[in-house]
Design a protein around this nucleic acid. Structure first.
Ligand SMILES: [Mn+2]
Ligand SMILES: [Mn+2]
Ligand SMILES: [Zn+2]
Ligand SMILES: [Zn+2]
Lengths: 142, 142
DNA sequence: TCAACAGTTTAGAATAATTATAATATATAA
DNA sequence: TTATATATTATAATTATTCTAAACTGTTGA
């Protein structure tokens, strides 16, 4: 689902009825330059800021899960108390800023391809993803 | 906290009172050959199997968090609905079996050192960890 | 055009993991 | 042994998420 699209068409193509709520959520999620990493709460807050009316939390959950199922969103595991979602659905790596709790995507060229030497018989590799945890460097005030 | 230790001594050394419950939990967690990856529920179940009396869930949480704070346990993020803990507290990589929901540690030599080319000014890297998701290979029945 | 129907939204209830509370019990220092 | 700080426990509270069931809306085809 790319930038500045007709989301009504797009939703219909993927078998999702283009309701007012879904179109608005798609605009918020996908009409942007960069990858968006968010929690359900981030999204609900942004919806309320951009619209003046609010969309039910249940609908936000429903829509995010529907978009995820259709492959337009990906869930990311950073910590275990809430779900993060990502508009970049490719297999890719992240920096996680432990101070600001922000996720940053890594481009292909920023992390060398990870070489896996282990093989588990009967199992295939679905994804290989790196998480780089960073925090402010208060040590070297030199 | 190594295998077959006097956990009463060990706990006292780290400033934790060696209560009956803590000693028993340490025995279950650390008296084993291999790394133990577990959820609070896994641990609570195992406690009830090995002891005949049960330890309050609140105490299980308290003890796991106390051990984590002292550096004897590490929290792992696999999915966002429950916490996984790891008796291997070093920075290391994992295979996650999406069929069985089991975590497997990677040895140093099983994944080549990940080369990070990106630098974020003012931030230092705390850890670089790889998660390899695997699942049963039903494709090649050839 | 518009009724019919399936799919969607919604508020609120239910669930599940985790954390907080506060009374009771225990470990340890004096 | 006794006093004090800490820990355990049952239970309540909290938080994220999912479920429910009634009201609503998008779409289809007469
Ligand atoms: Mn947690
Ligand atoms: Mn989830
Ligand atoms: Zn991303
Ligand atoms: Zn591990």
């Amino acid at each position: 689902m790319l930038k500045n699209m007709n989301f009504i068409e797009k939703l219909r193509e993927t078998g999702l009825r283009p309701t007012k709520q879904r179109v608005k959520i798609c605009e918020i999620l996908f009409n942007r330059e960069k990858t968006f990493h968010f929690t359900i709460n981030d999204l609900a807050k942004k919806i309320f800021e951009e619209l003046n009316e609010k969309i039910s939390l249940a609908t936000v959950y429903n829509t995010v899960h529907a978009l995820q199922k259709k492959g337009y969103l990906k869930e990311i595991s950073i910590n275990s108390n809430k779900s993060y979602f990502d508009t970049n659905t490719s297999v890719h790596h992240h920096f996680y800023d432990e101070d600001t709790h922000q996720l940053i995507d890594c481009d292909e060229n920023e992390i060398e391809t990870v070489n896996i030497k282990k093989n588990i018989t009967g199992k295939k590799i679905n994804s290989v993803e790196v998480l780089v945890r960073v925090a402010s460097d208060n040590q070297n005030q030199n």
